[in-house]
Amino acid sequence: MIRRPLVATLAGAAALALAVSACAPQDEDSGASASKSPASCTKDKLPLKSPGKLTVATDKPAFEPWFKDDKPSNGEGFEGAVAYAVAARLGFSKDEVVWKTQSFESSYAPGPKSFDFDINQISVTPARKKAVSFSDGYYNVQQGVVALKDGKYAKATTVAELSKARIAVQVGTTSLKAVTSQIKPGNQPKIFNTQIDAVNALKNKQVDVLVVDLPTAFYVTAAQIDDSKIVGQLPQTQSGGEVEHFGLLMERGSELAGCLDQAIGQLKSSGELAKIEQRWLTSSAGAPVLK
């Protein structure tokens, strides 16, 4: 995904991004811990970085529609709302949630973490699961294609039509993988360190289209690039037909994983997660699936 925000020479970073997002065979041990019983998921029994506090990380700036006003602590925006809903299911009040800044590209690097979980539009891939643990998915992702309204590809209706386009993506995101595996452009996509750089490339007509996750595509067209439009969305698949999804990221082997899965499951079964998504993520109307 590109997202937000959206790191190393570009060539080196691009190679790393492809390696991280590739769907390599997965080890039997994915880094997730065994499920927890309801009793072991009570607040006083959770394995926390700071006793009595739930430490949550995300990137800065924290972009809409995932967060509101670059302020995760206000609980607004899709991921801000999800974080506090998960916290509530674990027994934490809003003032018991502590936010930390963690860059997207370093979040899934191996090693100890200073947070309990990171919520930052991080797609779950087998390669990333070799370094960190993930919760069950809280959002299923589709990739959106953005172009200028007067651009050459503004009226494209098929993936094949985009194969000759100059495409912008952010390094380290699954948008890059979607471009290379689904669009298969004749020219190498132009890879940028940040979302802003990728957005500016389209704005300045250095590229023909920008590929980002669909909710971000709505934000780009609404607030970042005048006279731009969503051309459409790519089919929602990964290699092997698995739907790409965002998960809460933890230190590998975190004993908190089962409790986060339980909280997300409760949010799904109660309908609360669907309501959060409906409120904060723009409908995909007007973004047809490209054939």
Results as ranks from 00 to 15, higher is better:
160 A>F: 06
75 G>H: 10
264 I>S: 09
284 S>M: 10
288 P>E: 03
22 A>V: 14
205 K>F: 10
190 K>S: 15
245 H>L: 08
60 K>Q: 10
291 K>D: 12
217 A>I: 04
52 G>R: 05
73 S>V: 06
122 I>Q: 15
217 A>T: 04
214 L>D: 09
274 A>W: 12
196 I>M: 15
148 L>G: 01
190 K>P: 09
168 A>H: 11
50 S>N: 12
253 G>T: 01
105 E>H: 14
167 I>Q: 02
73 S>P: 00
198 A>L: 08
42 T>G: 09
177 K>S: 14
285 A>I: 10
234 L>R: 02
20 V>P: 06
144 G>H: 09
266 Q>H: 11
277 E>K: 13
50 S>L: 15
84 Y>N: 05
104 F>H: 11
115 F>H: 05
219 Y>A: 15
98 V>S: 10
157 T>W: 03
35 S>A: 14
174 T>H: 13
51 P>F: 03
90 L>P: 02
193 N>E: 13
166 R>Q: 12
258 G>D: 07
80 G>D: 14
78 F>Y: 14
226 D>S: 14
93 S>D: 07
183 I>A: 07
272 E>N: 10
205 K>M: 11
9 T>V: 09
197 D>K: 14
182 Q>T: 12
224 Q>T: 11
193 N>Q: 11
193 N>H: 13
201 A>I: 06
144 G>N: 08
33 S>G: 14
41 C>Q: 02
40 S>V: 11
51 P>D: 01
232 G>Y: 00
182 Q>N: 11
229 K>C: 12
221 T>P: 00
111 G>M: 03
190 K>G: 08
53 K>D: 00
290 L>A: 01
140 N>F: 00
40 S>D: 15
139 Y>A: 05
238 Q>F: 15
124 V>P: 10
176 L>A: 12
77 G>E: 09
218 F>Y: 14
194 T>F: 02
197 D>Y: 11
31 G>W: 01
11 A>L: 12
244 E>H: 10
132 V>Y: 05
52 G>W: 04
167 I>W: 10
9 T>M: 08
31 G>F: 02
145 V>Y: 07
22 A>K: 01
189 P>C: 07
223 A>P: 00
268 K>I: 12
146 V>H: 06
91 G>N: 05
175 S>Q: 07
190 K>M: 15
254 S>G: 03
22 A>N: 10
291 K>Q: 12
197 D>A: 15
159 V>I: 13
239 S>C: 12
260 L>W: 02
